[in-house]
């Protein structure tokens, strides 16, 4: 069925171009897009832009995860600490990361720092909120089992709270990864000289709609594959869960 849907879409695209319903400048034919993709793939242009974007995403995502995990853990182990930074978290959660690009360019220039900060801001919040939810929702009855066996707080955290929260943590990571992938393209369109976002913007300035479409398809494909890999990992890690989550 997915292949059929894809085939129908390509067929409609082909028919629209063949009948010249819209100009080839606005919507190039699938053949033209494929040829452009092939040229970009052979020259390595598309591959390197993809690798650069992916590298930025992974770097920002990793930093965001460490920060979200540490703050989420602090919020759980010492609930009173939340009052010191929770309002800041809620404030920045409502500020779209892309709106901070002008300020970040003024502060950090158009180097890698700006893009990393954008990704961190985009992926931090879904991960932080899910990590906090996972830890705070931990079943008190299971914690009592740890108490009965004389578990220390650290052992209780490692043996009960962390596995219990893992479903929420992984879901937060999956959402965070999707958000960072979206954010990097935006950031690269504004402040970059490489990466898929820059490639798309440059192609638009050169009136190469075919290359713009190639860029969009690569972004969609890489995003889909990374999400699928994450989904597969979640399924493997939560092998004891019922319906992909025990809480």
């Amino acid at each position: 069925m997915p292949a059929l849907c894809l085939a129908v879409l390509f067929f409609l695209w082909h028919v629209i171009c063949k009948m010249e319903i819209v100009s080839a400048y606005v919507l190039p034919s699938p053949k033209k897009v494929w040829e452009s993709f092939w040229k970009m793939a052979v020259s390595g242009e598309a591959f390197w832009d993809m690798i650069i974007s992916l590298g930025r995403v992974l770097k920002g995502f990793a930093i965001a995860f460490v920060l979200a995990f540490l703050l989420g853990m602090l919020r759980t182990m010492a609930p009173a600490s939340g009052q010191f930074y929770e309002y800041l978290v809620q404030f920045f959660r409502n500020v779209p990361p892309l709106s901070l690009i002008p300020l970040l360019i003024l502060w950090c220039g158009i180097g890698e720092t700006t893009k990393t900060v954008i990704i961190v801001l985009a992926s931090f919040f879904p991960m932080y909120l899910n990590i906090v939810k996972g830890f705070t929702d931990c079943d008190k009855k299971l914690l009592e089992v740890g108490d009965v066996f004389g578990y220390s707080r650290t052992k209780q955290f490692v043996k009960i709270m962390l596995p219990y929260a893992s479903a929420d943590i992984l879901v937060g990571m999956r959402i965070g990864l999707g958000y960072s992938w979206r954010a990097i393209i935006g950031a690269e369109m504004v402040a970059a000289s490489s990466g898929l976002g820059h490639m798309i913007l440059f192609a638009q300035q050169m009136s190469r709609t075919d290359k713009v479409i190639v860029g969009i398809l690569i972004i969609g494909f890489v995003g889909y594959v990374t999400d699928w890999v994450f989904g597969w990992m979640i399924k493997k890690l939560l092998k004891g869960s019922c319906k992909n989550g025990w809480n």
């Binding site: 009855k141 089992v145 219990y164 893992s166 939560l238 004891g240 869960s241 019922c242 025990w246």
Partner: peptide
């Protein structure tokens, strides 16, 4: 000491 609760309280994972 060991405690057997009314509910099984097993670790689902």
């Amino acid at each position: 000491t060991a405690f057997v609760f009314q509910e099984p309280r097993l670790m689902p994972w």
